[in-house]
Design a protein around this nucleic acid. Structure first.
Lengths: 219, 219
DNA sequence: ACCTGAACACCGTTCAAGT
DNA sequence: ACCTGAACACCGTTCAAGT
């Protein structure tokens, strides 16, 4: 058996000493613990039991708040979509009014988020519940992140600088490119020859501009 | 303990009855077993022990041929890259001489492969060895699949119908789009509103043509 | 050489119990 | 209500042993 020190409830968030149990909000504590494990130890270390240990509860306490491991992963993924949507939106707001510039900045923000939180991104887009539908709150969080791109496309169409078409569909083309770039970079599938200095930003921006301008040579 | 029937070596591939053990090539048998498990039971069922059971050997016999589970997954991934490269190449060969048509057909073949072999694709691009480098033979197999797109780009540049630039880099833009589309479709991240009839082919082809022509409106 | 059974330290999940 | 320890059926991996 491992020799962890016995855990006391004195690790921060709670002021009320009259509480009979460790946490006022074990659910939130487990999500935080899962995020810390992802960042510090990697995806393979993210187990229900490890999250419980880090939160200072017994290994089956999580089942009071999550039906199973997938539900915990879904909650962690949902946090990730919220953070991603916020990062992309913030970048867009700082990018000025030109929709094409907004699209490039938002795309780079997406890839940057992925490279900064690789393990979190894999949980967000990983194989949770391979065949089944995603939980509605998770699907909604994904929609919010995607929605930023959709808004940019729509405003660009209004301004006459982005091609016509269903905004959702045009935004999907933009989304797929940045999503694919992010995952290929995470998976080390991109040849080092394309990454001089190891900094992916110039390459990503070049791909984004090619998408905007098109791969076909104009004659 | 489970009550499996004792396994006999009489399940096919071997003619020579004088062999003292079950397999002439346990390594290949384990890869086949892994592929069957992926196709029939899903990624979470793909364990070293399950592959061994299916191949009819004890649960640690695989360690004679694979250093660890990652090595087995890498071998299965390598098979996948070979199959993907072949599918894309075959489609390209059938697409005629026009590079832009080749690019669209190759892109659709990529997505079609992903949708036909979802679990296999996740192993190919999954989080095997999160931080570490991929085994060289696996990296080479990935290069072969990517190489088909690179050749198309190069011939398109020669024909003057694809923009100038480092062929690897232009091909990366094309690859990222189809890779992103494939994974978003697998993850059910694409709104059903964009998939009338449930058939993804029209949507994928539309995205591919948008990439070729560009998202910017030509003025 | 190649395969085996026993063993270890883990998992996810369930259950009967404690406060 | 919320948490606990014991238990079950699994894993990945190692080891001493068999042929």
């Amino acid at each position: 058996m491992t020799s962890d020190q016995p855990n006391t409830p004195s690790d921060g968030a709670s002021d009320e000493a009259s509480r009979p149990y460790h946490h006022g909000d074990l659910r939130a504590a487990l999500i935080r613990a899962g995020l810390a494990i992802l960042a510090e130890e990697g995806a393979q270390a993210l187990t229900v039991r490890a999250a419980a240990r880090r939160a200072g509860v017994s290994h089956n306490a999580p089942y009071r708040h999550f039906a199973d491991k997938e539900a915990l992963l879904a909650a962690i993924a949902e946090e990730g979509f919220d953070a991603l949507a916020e990062a992309v939106e913030r970048t867009r707001a700082a990018a000025g009014a030109a929709p094409q510039a907004q699209l490039e900045e938002a795309g780079w923000a997406y890839v940057r988020f992925a490279l900064s939180h690789p393990n979190h991104l894999r949980v967000m887009f990983g194989s949770l519940i391979p065949g089944a539908e995603r939980p509605p709150s998770l699907a909604a969080a994904g929609e919010r992140a995607f929605g930023v791109l959709e808004e940019i496309v729509q405003s660009g169409q209004t301004a006459g600088v982005i091609i016509a078409g269903e905004p959702r569909q045009v935004a999907l083309t933009a989304w797929a490119l940045v999503h694919g770039l992010a995952l290929l970079l995470l998976d080390r599938q991109v040849s080092a020859a394309l990454l001089p200095s190891g900094n992916p930003e110039p390459l990503v921006r070049l791909c984004l501009r090619q998408q905007t301008a098109g791969l076909a040579r104009r004659g």
